[in-house]
Write a protein that binds this DNA or RNA. Structure first.
Lengths: 343, 343
DNA sequence: TTGTAGGCGTTATCAT
DNA sequence: ATGATAACGCCTACAA
């Protein structure tokens, strides 16, 4: 194992001062051309690489952002991460990641670590069970900007990029009612989630637009586990007036519900039409997918979060912005039909 | 913006030496109980958090690994990332990520950055077009262990975790031949990829096992773009003796090929049976998915890569291991039928 | 144009 | 049990 070359080493060999080397490597104008070239030559020979850890330490800037998401293996989050990484790398920023796996303790520890690392900023989609927001105030104290993404805590004065579920839900209801459906089921998520409340409110509003009375039996919910997804669908199937259409909390819920239909010899989108909030990019190309998806554009949302974050990072450096404008961008979700996609 | 508290600040307030504070915060036994408590008290009051950038710099250790993958939005890689992150976090390591997007230049620049950051180790799945392996030698010089994952460069003396495609392919051929298929098509990827060569060799071997002559017309390839996927399938459909079964390079290829079948009023798995190498975790639950998938267990592979990497990191610290054993773990891929899964 | 010196926050090694 | 000091690698005012 060779010793890793440093500026000092280069300086020693050239019998010049370390600061001269430092300046030469940066192309500082005051350093003579000959010296600069000699320095670069030796640097190349030694395979010198600057030590970022030293630079971070000195400059109190890491050129690194943190991204905390519940689960990278979820297509929704991974495509967001993909967009964020791409954006950050174009800004010459690095990306540090953590996944909470819906565990608030792990989330907290990730955020603590990121705080200790003095990251320049953080994008986070909080876990389902996060109730303690103290850590976010901490981050504010440490002057580390935070942008929330998709899953927003109930706090004021925060920056976020999220998606308005109502627009997509209304489009879905419109679409179904136009096709003649009146018994529209909703398999919702756990009601303590804001996302579930939003879906329910929009569902109610949608039916209300057509003066269709709300039938509470048609509204079931699941904790999003497979078992409960099945149970919820079973509940709908057992109704006297079985729904002719179902809107599912997300694709995974739809998948399980559709599985159950098959088990009962029912055909998806013939016996019961399905629409689900989108996670999976694959379904739009499948035959027996839901009839339509309600898209939330995770990648776009992620990139927007990154945009906001980089504005904040830039603003922080300037120290000029006295008025803390809170960037709160809300995209409209949108229903996308799966008929005749792509080919 | 408050000033971020440091050890010095605590020391000043308590009128003790900084080293005392440092030791107290670490629970060093030589520090008196009273002092330790006083230090902790003030540290809490000031919301002191240790500055990792300083520690990294001083200790020449970052407790951070880098993960470089072609595309986070690909389910195969994102589930690997999920496994790696989970494993690393259990070892109290942080994860730095980069996605090459199949661009060797970007890949190189990511690796350079990681080298500059003095990461403790790197897991990488190289881009399709990477031909210059010099950077990996560089990393070796910097004593940064590298474990390759799934996409392995043609180098000696490397560590990797990969997947043997042959076993799954043979199972697929077995399965199809047993069902009476003799005309089995192969939609392969670009032939310069090792992954394509492996598939082809295994395909040939599989047919050979049954003394079925290779019909080169049944072997088509695509650069994995949608257009070429369609073209490849069109080619197969236009044959006089159209295949009764098709094995596809991966799920995305299968998706497009299956789309084309639908367009031609052919029914998947009735008119032509499909088996594809797995990317998408969703398909095993769908009705009109391929008949079976050949699983490569990305998460398991990723975790194994992480295991190898952490062994290397541990070994590097000890400086004892004189014999550089190269960990090269190869999983068997395995065909998984999609009939009656999960429910 | 180049050298000198000080410091970023922490910790290890002395000494007391 | 605690203090003093130096060092990690780099950068930058200031001096020359």
């Amino acid at each position: 194992m060779e010793k890793i070359p440093t500026i000092k080493e280069i300086a020693k060999r050239l019998k010049v001062n370390a600061s001269t080397v430092s300046r030469a490597l940066h192309g500082h104008p005051s350093i003579g051309l000959v010296t600069t070239m000699r320095v670069n030559k030796v640097a190349n020979e030694l395979n010198y690489e600057r030590n970022q850890t030293a630079i971070f330490f000195k400059q109190r800037k890491t050129f690194t952002i943190g991204v905390v998401l519940p689960d990278f293996s979820d297509a929704f989050f991974s495509s967001a991460l993909s967009g964020i990484e791409d954006y950050a790398s174009k800004k010459n920023y690095n990306v540090f990641v953590g996944q909470s796996l819906e565990n608030p303790d792990k989330e907290k520890s990730i955020l603590d670590t990121m705080k200790n690392h003095r990251l320049d900023g953080i994008i986070i989609s909080i876990s389902k069970n996060t109730t303690d927001y103290e850590v976010f105030n901490q981050l504010k104290k440490y002057n580390i900007p935070v942008v929330f993404f998709d899953r927003i805590p109930d706090m004021e004065d925060i920056h976020y990029s999220a998606c308005n579920l109502q627009s997509g839900m209304l489009q879905a209801v419109d679409c179904l009612v136009e096709k003649g459906h009146r018994n529209i089921g909703l398999i919702n998520g756990p009601l303590h989630l804001g996302a579930s409340k939003e879906r329910l409110a929009a569902y109610n509003k949608g039916l209300n637009n057509y003066s269709i009375a709300i039938n509470t039996q048609l509204i079931v919910s699941s904790d999003l586990s497979a078992d409960q997804n099945y149970r919820a669908m079973r509940q709908l199937l057992s109704l006297k007036e079985r729904p002719t259409a179902v809107i599912a909390f997300n694709d995974y819920v739809a998948r399980d519900a559709m599985s159950l239909m098959k088990k009962n010899d029912l055909v998806v989108n013939r016996d019961i039409s399905f629409i689900s909030f989108a996670n999976s990019p694959i379904w739009s190309f499948m035959d027996n997918s839901p009839m339509a998806s309600i898209e939330q554009f995770p990648q776009k949302q992620g990139v927007k979060a990154a945009e906001i974050l980089f504005e904040l990072i830039a603003g922080r450096n300037e120290e000029t912005s006295s008025a803390p404008a809170f960037n709160q961008v809300i995209f409209d979700s949108s229903m996308v039909s799966h008929h005749g996609k792509r080919i």
